[in-house]
């Protein structure tokens, strides 16, 4: 059956021999064999049977099996829902959570379920979603979804990597001005020329003076930033 590992499944009837194939896959994974070519050939032959093996009720949660499943994610998604697939793989093998998430986000950067997946897989939820979408047309919606999910730390991180107002605007819309203060402070630290106070005023309302003072208290290392607003803001 070594030929199976090379992707030669000629003469195999997947549905009839599913238990044999499952046992082979588990044994090979446990032996440290690479199952990618086996799974690719299996997917071409019968993607439904492969989905049963990878993510069905009797699927085995071995890292080798999960990684091979990710290699045929496109084929598996044709026969089961994407969110169901990645959720199942993550449940089967939490150790591979970040790898599962990375593939899920890369393939579905605009899907809302990736935030729930991220919450389960990442120490800093939202980090992968924002990292993968940064610089793409999906970044805006990724910021929005992370803000709605309350991923303040990831939004704070991403603004340091790409200084712009996008994460702050999303956060203020989703959670209000005060909960977004850490993101505002990170935005100022990343680029003090960004119109942080003006943007927040335009989203929540004009009387931002107390909020701005709270922001200045967090950006003491940038006296120039506060000075820029000295004549525009009143004592709260």
């Amino acid at each position: 059956m070594r030929v199976w590992l090379r992707g030669d499944l000629s003469g195999v009837s997947p549905r009839e021999e599913l238990e044999v194939l499952r046992a082979f896959a588990v044994e090979s994974a446990q032996a440290g064999e690479d199952l990618t070519r086996f799974f690719k050939a299996f997917a071409e032959l019968d993607a439904v049977a492969l989905a049963e093996l990878c993510a069905g009720p009797r699927a085995v949660g071995h890292p080798g099996l999960v990684r091979a499943s990710l290699a045929v994610a496109e084929q598996l998604e044709r026969v089961m829902s994407a969110s169901g697939l990645y959720n199942r793989l993550m449940i089967l093998q939490p150790e591979c959570g970040r790898e599962v998430l990375a593939v899920a986000v890369a393939r579905h950067p605009a899907s809302s379920w990736t935030t729930a997946l991220s919450r389960r897989a990442e120490a800093v939820p939202g980090r992968a979603l924002l990292g993968i979408t940064r610089g793409t047309s999906h970044y805006h919606s990724a910021c929005k979804r992370c803000a709605e999910a309350g991923f303040v730390e990831a939004l704070t991180e991403t603004v340091q990597a790409q200084p712009d107002l996008e994460p702050l605007v999303a956060a203020v819309h989703a959670m209000g001005a005060y909960p977004a203060l850490p993101i505002a402070a990170a935005t100022v630290a990343a680029d003090p020329n960004l119109l942080v106070v003006e943007a927040v005023a335009a989203i929540v309302g004009p009387n931002v003076d107390a909020w701005a003072q709270a922001l200045f208290a967090q950006t003491l290392n940038d006296a120039g930033f506060a000075a820029r607003y000295a004549h525009l803001l009143r004592e709260p």
Binding site: V169, A199, A201, A202, I203, G205, P206, N207
Partner: peptide, 16 residues
Amino acid sequence: WGSPSPWPFRGSFLGN
């Protein structure tokens, strides 16, 4: 009332 835009209070002012 705020304008129907992503920046509903751009240019707004409010006081007493």
